[in-house]
Amino acid sequence: MGAAFGRPFRRPGLVDGCAHTQCWEPEPLRLPDTGLTATGDGEGVLVARLRSEASGALRRYQSQSIPADRWADVRPFVQNAVALVAPACHYLAERLMVVAAQFVDWVVHVNGMPMVANVFHPVLVRRYIARDDVSWKDKTRRDYRSFLLRISEVAVPNQGPLEFAPLNGQSLTAPYTDCELQLLESWARGQSTSPRRRGAGAVLALGAGAGLDPWEMQHLRRRDVHVDRDGIVVAVAGASPRQVPVLGRWESLLRDAIAEVRDDAWVVGSASRTTTFNIITPFINKTDFGNEPKPVPNRMRATWLTTHLAAGTHGGALMRAAGLRKPQHLLTSLVHIPTLDTPEHRRRILAEARHGQ
């Protein structure tokens, strides 16, 4: 099947038995006169118009990140959308289904919109791509935007082009203010059950206190959090293994969150969980809310970064603690610190970061 999403196979022509989209059809299907609908008995009606390899790839796909009842609800519509445009795209069948399925589920089940062609309206695509409750990288957002807009062009042909903000170098989240952080601490400590208080406290302390992203939070075990009289240090594994000292403001909250957690247990989530999908956002959405701002891990991490920059933390040390690879990534946070957003400070931070590397 080949490479990851966004890396097309280059075929000289159709290849028998290949499920890759470039081998599906010579040209895309046409939008039915009835428009893009969810019509079908458990699967999209357009699937049957594709070659057998292509239709088989779409029929076999089962979403692992969407609840079964919700997936059954949107499956025919998603299949119709992918079948409509996939032959003109250079992406793997399974990856196309992943993106379309998650987008349609978000529009229909999270935002409550009807399942009609306007699901793929460019305004909704723009809202989806600009979400700040996910930890997508810029390249991921660009890939998702490209494919979803391709569907939009076919499914909603009468809509003109829509202006999108550039993604390269654009900060998609803003740090919390001190007042907002106080409200978020009240959110974490004020949950109605002990498991929710522990989970909310851990998410806030690890995000705003150590700059961890959702994937790193959910893969952290109690034994990775080292507590002594000098403070707390978190040992982060994964793609950017590192040691991160927790900011003093959040030490008490993290201590309380892990006080009754076994050494080999997960810091966030039940001890028996096995899922590798993002559990942090669903957990946050199930917590009790008041008038506090929405708890968003990316904003917590942005707050951690700006806190260190404002305090004068050495750029090289901050790069290592944040798991960053490009010094320019630090500079995107300076827009939120007007006193440091100057050529002089930018040069200093870049020099420190490059020297630290």
Results as ranks from 00 to 15, higher is better:
residue 3 A to R: 12
residue 11 R to V: 07
residue 13 G to H: 04
residue 18 C to A: 11
residue 19 A to V: 13
residue 21 T to Y: 04
residue 24 W to A: 03
residue 28 P to I: 11
residue 29 L to S: 01
residue 30 R to V: 10
residue 30 R to G: 14
residue 33 D to A: 15
residue 34 T to P: 03
residue 34 T to E: 15
residue 37 T to P: 00
residue 42 G to F: 09
residue 43 E to P: 00
residue 49 R to N: 12
residue 57 A to S: 13
residue 65 S to T: 15
residue 66 I to C: 12
residue 66 I to N: 12
residue 68 A to W: 08
residue 70 R to K: 14
residue 70 R to T: 09
residue 70 R to W: 12
residue 71 W to H: 06
residue 72 A to E: 14
residue 82 V to E: 05
residue 93 A to V: 05
residue 96 L to Y: 01
residue 97 M to H: 06
residue 97 M to F: 09
residue 98 V to N: 02
residue 101 A to H: 10
residue 104 V to H: 07
residue 109 H to F: 13
residue 112 G to R: 10
residue 120 F to C: 08
residue 131 R to T: 06
residue 132 D to K: 00
residue 141 R to D: 02
residue 146 S to C: 11
residue 153 E to V: 12
residue 154 V to S: 13
residue 155 A to V: 06
residue 156 V to S: 10
residue 160 G to H: 08
residue 161 P to W: 02
residue 163 E to N: 03
residue 177 T to K: 02
residue 177 T to D: 07
residue 177 T to S: 15
residue 179 C to F: 08
residue 181 L to N: 03
residue 181 L to T: 02
residue 183 L to N: 01
residue 185 E to V: 01
residue 185 E to N: 05
residue 198 R to Q: 09
residue 200 A to E: 01
residue 202 A to N: 02
residue 204 L to N: 00
residue 205 A to E: 00
residue 210 A to D: 11
residue 211 G to M: 10
residue 211 G to H: 09
residue 213 D to I: 11
residue 218 Q to D: 00
residue 219 H to M: 05
residue 232 I to T: 06
residue 248 G to E: 07
residue 251 E to Y: 04
residue 254 L to F: 12
residue 256 D to F: 08
residue 257 A to L: 05
residue 257 A to I: 05
residue 260 E to I: 05
residue 268 V to G: 03
residue 274 T to D: 12
residue 275 T to G: 11
residue 284 I to P: 01
residue 285 N to F: 03
residue 286 K to Q: 15
residue 286 K to Y: 05
residue 287 T to W: 07
residue 287 T to P: 02
residue 290 G to T: 08
residue 296 V to D: 01
residue 296 V to E: 03
residue 304 W to L: 06
residue 306 T to I: 11
residue 310 A to N: 01
residue 313 T to A: 14
residue 313 T to P: 04
residue 314 H to E: 15
residue 316 G to A: 11
residue 321 A to S: 14
residue 328 Q to D: 15
residue 331 L to C: 13
residue 332 T to Q: 09
residue 333 S to V: 03
residue 339 T to S: 15
residue 342 T to Y: 09
residue 343 P to H: 05
residue 345 H to E: 15
residue 345 H to S: 14
residue 349 I to M: 06
residue 349 I to V: 14
